[in-house]
Design a protein around this nucleic acid. Structure first.
Lengths: 341, 341
DNA sequence: TTTAGCACTTAAAACTTATGAGTGCTAATC
DNA sequence: GATTAGCACTCATAAGTTTTAAGTGCTAAA
């Protein structure tokens, strides 16, 4: 479909534009890159590439800019990932070596590393809870009417919350409730825990049925919640397109829409997905590009968001490297309760 | 020092500028406000006010703008707080009525209410830990080598963290450690807990001295940490001065500097402090105004940050009202373990 | 097929000229 | 003496104009 020269030209334009954020003209292309033909030839090719939909022209006398389709082709078949710089490798290693207590922290470290190295904004969320299996539930009475609920999963996630109890209960009652809940929920897949299971549990114990129900309710909330961590929020200011007030504002507004971000991260597609500009399903993202990365061993999902003129190759190189580290480190089925299995 | 007319003119200029963010001229002043004199007279007065340092002139043909000193005088002696609108009163009441489980949530609710009503950015932090008295410490073994540490204070704050244990320990050992720690720390003022106390505790138990020490260490960290909550981060976009890219950027950068914000909130001055522009000690704040509000009954501290052209009267009215509600609600010495004492 | 040459396009930058809001001063008025 | 009408002056902003330069597309020659 595209001859080699067109491919080369398209690739060069995309890469130059990503680097300099300036429309690329035929003359510059010939001068800076070794293409072996004259500007006129390039112009002819560029005109064809534009007609085919791979390039856009901001206006007649500007150079060319990649279209969404142009980026798409670049990302799918022209781009190549590179080895990271030594300091980047070291930085990632160091960040991922931070002592990890709880499985959700792994993805937090990843998010931090990626945002620092790429200069983009990164959001991340821990292991998918619906795949999780409950390991243990602990109820701890604090004072006379606060209850700390801790849910542990086999994957090593620890989730806690504190609730108010509607009436005062004794340590013994709590222990009994805890025992019941533990027996019923231990080794259960989170996705299988439905309201009727909870009803069944609460039926067994009629005196404290209201307390039990509110505890179970809270447990449901806990295990189904997945917090979003945001890194490098202000990194947008490092990219010239965001000097436009409105774009910066809409970007920052998107970051605040946690629910939206949750949805966007829950893609059931490949492990690494790239959504360029208006390829994004949600219109709020149409001026940005999004790369999602599902970490191996269900460690979590990371989303990198930046301008459509994003350094896709760089981001993917980083992801690739991190993916490899994670695979080695957490090879055999995940990270459980603070140690490798 | 300032005659009544000058006061009236200064007040009117400040208020008009706060409302419209446009330099105020003599003609407009006479037209819109009932001053009873001609523009020429106003001009003479304004020239004097400028000479005295209360007004600034962006340029010859612009109107006047309050200087820091002008705002200062306004805030100190000209401004009057107003009753809130009914819907604002209702909104605050509703927000503060949210079920509160833990004492730190009160100030979070306050922060949210203030940022929603004032359209400024608000940060908040819970009760001052150094005044706190430890109520209880709970150690809960999760799996074989994760330990959940919970510290309760008499004030009703609950702080938790999970640590990795360097070696596997049994439930019994943890119980024993917990007992020792509880006895030593219960009813102790946080500010009195020093390293030597901890050393003394750990000396009593020599076998697990390293584990105990890391637990104590973590408890120290926990009780001395005070998280900052941020509300209405993107509210800055509601104020025209932040259409200037650089100002918006520096504002958002300040918000990320959590350590700086912590310092700024720890003022040991009055309960309500107003820092206008370059009155701020930290140069990062010199383009903004900051109002700090120390909630009654040591519930926490709230900081409201906005442009120097901030609606001080509005913010103070809101603070005043909230202060009154809090005083009534938590009258007798605070909020303990989920209920009023 | 490639390219030199050139007329054409156009955004952005650099000037230029209004416009108008606001001032400060002077001299007349209350 | 305080106030104000009148008016020349200032200056940022907006609007309009010209220049510049980067880039294009087309034609005809290589």
């Amino acid at each position: 479909m595209l001859n080699d020269r067109k491919k080369k030209i398209l690739q060069t334009i995309v890469e130059d534009y990503i680097e300099n954020s300036q429309p690329v003209g035929s003359k510059k292309l010939v001068e800076c890159y070794d293409l072996g033909v004259s500007p006129a030839t390039i112009r002819n090719e560029m005109a064809e590439l534009e007609e085919m939909g791979y390039l856009d022209k901001p206006h007649t006398s500007a150079g060319r800019v990649p279209s969404t389709l142009g980026y798409r082709v670049y990302v799918d078949s022209l781009m190549q990932t590179n080895d990271l710089k030594e300091e980047e490798v070291l930085f990632i290693k160091k960040t991922l070596e931070n002592e990890i207590i709880e499985v959700n922290e792994i993805v937090k470290n990843i998010g931090k590393a990626v945002s620092d190295i790429t200069d983009y904004t990164v959001f991340s969320t821990g292991p998918d809870v619906t795949d999780a299996v409950i390991e243990d539930v602990k109820l701890i009475l604090l004072g006379s009417n606060m209850l700390l609920i801790v849910v542990l999963t086999k994957e090593g996630s620890v989730k806690e919350t504190v609730i108010n109890l509607s009436k005062t209960v004794t340590e013994e009652v709590i222990q009994k409730l805890n025992e019941i809940i533990r027996i019923k929920l231990k080794d259960e897949y989170v996705k299988n825990i439905k309201i009727d299971v909870l009803k069944y549990i609460s039926n067994e114990l009629s005196v404290y049925v209201d307390i039990l129900f509110s505890i179970l309710n809270e447990i449901m909330k806990l295990i189904n919640e997945n917090d979003i961590t945001l890194d490098g929020r202000n990194n947008i200011f490092k990219h010239p397109e965001f000097k436009k007030y409105d774009l910066a504002k809409s970007f920052l507004d998107v970051l605040e829409a946690k629910q939206l971000i949750k949805e966007v991260l829950q893609v059931e597609d490949k492990d690494v997905n790239i959504y360029i500009g208006d390829e994004n399903e949600h219109s709020e993202f149409k001026d940005f590009s999004l790369i999602t990365f599902k970490c191996p061993e269900n460690l979590g999902i990371v989303g990198i968001i930046g301008p459509t003129r994003m350094d896709y190759a760089k981001v993917l190189s980083v992801i690739k490297y991190i993916n490899q580290i994670l695979k080695n480190k957490y090879k055999k089925g995940g990270y459980v309760n603070g140690e490798k299995e």
